[in-house]
């Protein structure tokens, strides 16, 4: 469904992604693991063309999206949930969702305001509150809900557990599994291996912007050397 091929991305002269390749099949949840600075966020941004890769290609649903502008990629069905959440703090919850709204897409679940308020009951109670009044956990839910309003077929979640109370992280895990059961494909970048293990089918470990491991968690556990070298839990 999504294929990254030999992506090279730079910030200034710093070479962040180095011939990075991996792919995600339809309906899969893939965890993108790696240290801080390994290039996880840049990978997400490169898919969205918020960082423009110097070389390489990103193929989504059979189309090369490498040269597309960001908004067109979002329109094609990739939903991006950034690490810093970036909710619109001046807008109400409903208005935040409205920004993310797109027309229904064939073959993927369509989300209405009510569906999302069912999925995130905390948000329903506060639907007319401004974003600034939300706690960190609620903000994280709002970013996910806002992205779902675009009826994405592929969801990119950048470190959703960062800075969130353990109990909320558990809820988040349930939500992601629920989304998976509805047929969504998910790429989730994580530093929390425990969390990744719960939600993901497969792990991709990157280090210095290169793919160092690609396989399921059983393989990862049987290869403690790799695990400790790139994750060192």
């Amino acid at each position: 469904m999504l294929e990254l091929f030999d992506i090279n991305s730079f910030y200034g002269k710093a070479h962040i992604l180095n011939d990075l390749s991996f792919n995600i099949a339809h309906g899969e949840v893939v965890a993108l693991l790696g240290r801080n600075g390994a290039g996880k966020t840049t990978t997400m941004k490169s898919i969205m063309q918020m960082v423009r890769p110097a070389t390489g290609s990103v193929t989504f649903a059979g189309q090369d999206i490498s040269k597309w502008p960001t908004h067109k990629i979002a329109k094609s069905g990739i939903g991006y949930v950034p690490e810093e959440r970036r909710i619109f703090s001046d807008l109400t919850i409903v208005e935040n969702l409205e920004v993310g709204r797109q027309s229904p897409r064939e073959g993927v679940p369509t989300w209405s305001f009510d569906d999302l308020f069912d999925l995130f009951p905390n948000l329903a109670e506060r639907r007319n509150n401004r974003g600034r009044a939300l706690s960190g956990g609620e903000q994280q839910m709002l970013t996910i809900a806002r992205t779902l309003m675009g009826n994405p077929s592929l969801l990119l979640l950048d470190e959703p557990s960062e800075g969130i109370a353990p109990i909320i992280v558990e809820q988040m895990a349930k939500t992601i599994l629920e989304l998976k059961s509805q047929g969504l494909t998910v790429l989730i970048s994580e530093q929390n291996l425990h969390f990744a293990r719960i939600v993901a089918d497969r792990a991709v470990i990157i280090e210095s912007g290169t793919n160092r491991f690609d396989g399921n968690f059983a393989d990862l556990d049987s290869d403690p050397e790799t695990r400790d070298a790139y994750l060192s839990v």
Partner: peptide
């Protein structure tokens, strides 16, 4: 109950 949860997401 209020914070740590079931303990599945930390060591």
């Amino acid at each position: 109950e209020v914070y740590l949860g079931g303990g599945t997401v930390f060591a």
